[in-house]
Design a protein around this nucleic acid. Sequence first.
DNA 1: CTTCGTCTGTGCGTTAGGCCACATACGTGC
DNA 2: GCACGTATGTGGCCTAACGCACAGACGAAG
Lengths: 237, 237
Amino acid sequence: MSASVRSDAFSENRLLAELPDDEYERLLPSLQEVSFSLGEVVYEFGGKLDYVFFPTTSIVSLLYTMENGASAEMGLTGNDGVVGIALFMGGGTMPNRAVVQSAGAAIRMRARVLQDEFARGGQFQRLLLRYTQALITQISQTAVCNRLHSVEQQLCRWLLLSHDRVKADELIMTQELIADMLGVRREGVTVAAGRLQDDGAISYVRGHIKILDRKKLEETVCECYRVVKDEFDRLLG
Amino acid sequence: MSASVRSDAFSENRLLAELPDDEYERLLPSLQEVSFSLGEVVYEFGGKLDYVFFPTTSIVSLLYTMENGASAEMGLTGNDGVVGIALFMGGGTMPNRAVVQSAGAAIRMRARVLQDEFARGGQFQRLLLRYTQALITQISQTAVCNRLHSVEQQLCRWLLLSHDRVKADELIMTQELIADMLGVRREGVTVAAGRLQDDGAISYVRGHIKILDRKKLEETVCECYRVVKDEFDRLLG
DNA sequence: CTTCGTCTGTGCGTTAGGCCACATACGTGC
DNA sequence: GCACGTATGTGGCCTAACGCACAGACGAAG
């Protein structure tokens, strides 16, 4: 497989891009690009998955929704990861929901193909496990951050994590949806976002957030963002 | 390997107990029982591990400590799991701290032995990955619970999770330490524990908690406990 | 029995964030 | 332009939990 062929849409996902040629070649026929629209549910709690998804330009949030309807995000996956880890971790069904947080494309792979390649124990397996390890760090840090930090700090963390996984400086996302992700009230997001806007860090108009000054966000954010980012870089960089 | 030999201390850990005979036999020479004392640090943030540990009668908490010293637990491991997942997930170093929460024994295994057996891709690998999947659920639910539930509910969750992993009805643990685990103030634990004590659910005397009425705890606890327990039963039962 | 250290109980004032109720304000479709 | 639906700004009130200060209370060591 020549380098030119590797520069296709599939390789926009970092996990797929890092595969050695032989594994890539073996998987290539089983990969299809699909497009995710904003708000689309990739899978529901307890659902069985026929495919795993490697986001390229999309971002997918992992959420848990309580019995009373309240929800909170535990992590998010972009072009540095894969959606559907239970398929290779052995769980079968997923203990959470996955919702498209930023519309875009993803590469899908049949569950069976994934499992067969995983069982070969090559680089594919190692990459998936390292990603899972990074995801665990992200979820852990979300747990800690939920407990110890302010809504404003968490909003910064969320904006930065999303910004890292999207090419543009604009995020399409209402405050209502962000509130669901962070597990806080919509009004809480409004005031936090208002402060960031007053600082000139972002501008926010009806579901369109512009990152104006990333540095300001990085000054306001808690250490949780850095911990997660460093761990992703260490494990997958 | 006969069944009688399998009823040794090593098999008090559910992961080791579920190994098929050939894998168990292969690993047996590499297993040693060690004892953990209360408060002992199994590993520090960023530390490299020479061994993984399969708790038998001990419980180990996974904590994250912030720069300002505040800490919060993201999960806990008893005789149903293993401490040191980064060693087979590929991370190498651990992105958290592990502290002994309940004194007792554990089985240790050299990192290299673990990795070699993991690489064989047999039942051992499947068990470790299924456990990791269950741990992810636990951490996720901790994140959600931290965000959405009261200290009293979280205390119940923590008591029940600990009670499930210990044979006795008595837990040795000060309110101060529980507060560190839950990421709340010690006084907050005092009042929550006081209410549970008034209800007759527990009794609490200077670091000795007695579970008097488990049912009462189960009535007070949030759904998070059940979600985690069900997932552990499903994956490892 | 006394002392001292540790653990637990309690009572403030303060605050972040929840809930509720609106007031705007933008944007699309008519 | 106008109307209507959706998104955002704002305020008032309330509660859980924090921070601080200190009062018991138990337990081991002398």
